[in-house]
Design a protein around this nucleic acid. Sequence first.
DNA 1: TCCGGCAGACTAACCAGTCGGTATGTCGCG
DNA 2: CGCGACATACCGACTGGTTAGTCTGCCGGA
Lengths: 209, 209
Amino acid sequence: MATPKTTPGGGAKEKAGAGGAVPVPQRLMAAATRLFSERGYDRTSVQEIVEAAGVTKGALYHYFGSKDDLLHEIYGRLLRLQQDRLDAYADAEQPVEQRLRRAAADVVVTTIDNLDDARIFFRSMHQLSPEKQKQVRAERRLYHERFRDLVQEGQRTGVFNAATPPDLVVDYHFGSVHHLSSWYRPDGRLTPQQVADHLADLLLRALRP
Amino acid sequence: MATPKTTPGGGAKEKAGAGGAVPVPQRLMAAATRLFSERGYDRTSVQEIVEAAGVTKGALYHYFGSKDDLLHEIYGRLLRLQQDRLDAYADAEQPVEQRLRRAAADVVVTTIDNLDDARIFFRSMHQLSPEKQKQVRAERRLYHERFRDLVQEGQRTGVFNAATPPDLVVDYHFGSVHHLSSWYRPDGRLTPQQVADHLADLLLRALRP
DNA sequence: TCCGGCAGACTAACCAGTCGGTATGTCGCG
DNA sequence: CGCGACATACCGACTGGTTAGTCTGCCGGA
């Protein structure tokens, strides 16, 4: 990799009239996401992030309180995205098996669409400060519960097999979602939608009475 | 340069004397396993490991070529254990659904019994040197294929639903196995065997024709 | 005497975060 | 309209602390 020192005043970046200019905070998030996913949080230096984003440490610490903050933002972004989507599916006016099926498939597609975020999510939880970790866990729990309630509703109304505790069913499914970042390759045989359909099928079949 | 050290553990001589004397290499492995699991590989210093094992750096580098080697040994230990167990179940003289069911349940129990190893396994793969990583991946692929062949056999003979690609079925199940270290607590409601039975049930139900 | 097994001081590298400094923008006001 | 005052956005050298791995040498048993 070339390591061009940013020449003061010599940069051709920024301020084009066309919409190509990405704000610095977003450039930093994007660079951090890619690097954290590739090398892991602890193996990525702040210097590497700012170089990848074409700025310096001064800029990073102007917008973020710490390296840890950057990671927290990545968590927040994915959590908000997935919670919003789940809420939409869970609130729909449909039979519960439809709602669960669509929610289960959607989280797979969303995870594959944000595979870097997902990889970071499951690998770097313990790099967050205890306080931020607690917050992430709390949000995660809300998500989990929302999903679990769908399973529970189906079991209560008899459309799902009630032999397995609903929390365990949710962990079973999210294990496979979690695992996606370990094996799914964008250049593989199956499209994200196909994978999602298969995994949702497996879940629904496992829940047949 | 790291001289290639002999693999510890194998022919380690046991010190005669007081009954509780555990050989140094094993003490180091045990300390490293606990610490890597608790704090993560990068956040654990070699100094902490040797202190926990009651020795010094000299001892560690006498038996292991590097910190990375220690991690590799942990991977090797779990891989060998699980491969041996899977082979035993897969080779049994039983109908394929029995063999798969027992193998699927066993890997859950074994994972819970070695939860620290499992946590390290799925969290620290990318901290291994590329070379060791390749080796671990190769061994794991063998394991995966052995498991997949059971699914495939059942699908071919019509006792399993053939709608889902067998590789995907294996990833589905192992996703949930890996995920165990994220949610299973020894002081929770379910015993390891109960969790194993539930997860095996889910898998087998998902595979019903 | 020799050697495996181990002690522990040492080094070279690295890194998160700080801080004083500069450039550009904007607002109030005469 | 012009000008000072303050703010925002960023730069990059520097600091204090940490760490993996090395190396010399001691010690006790064969």
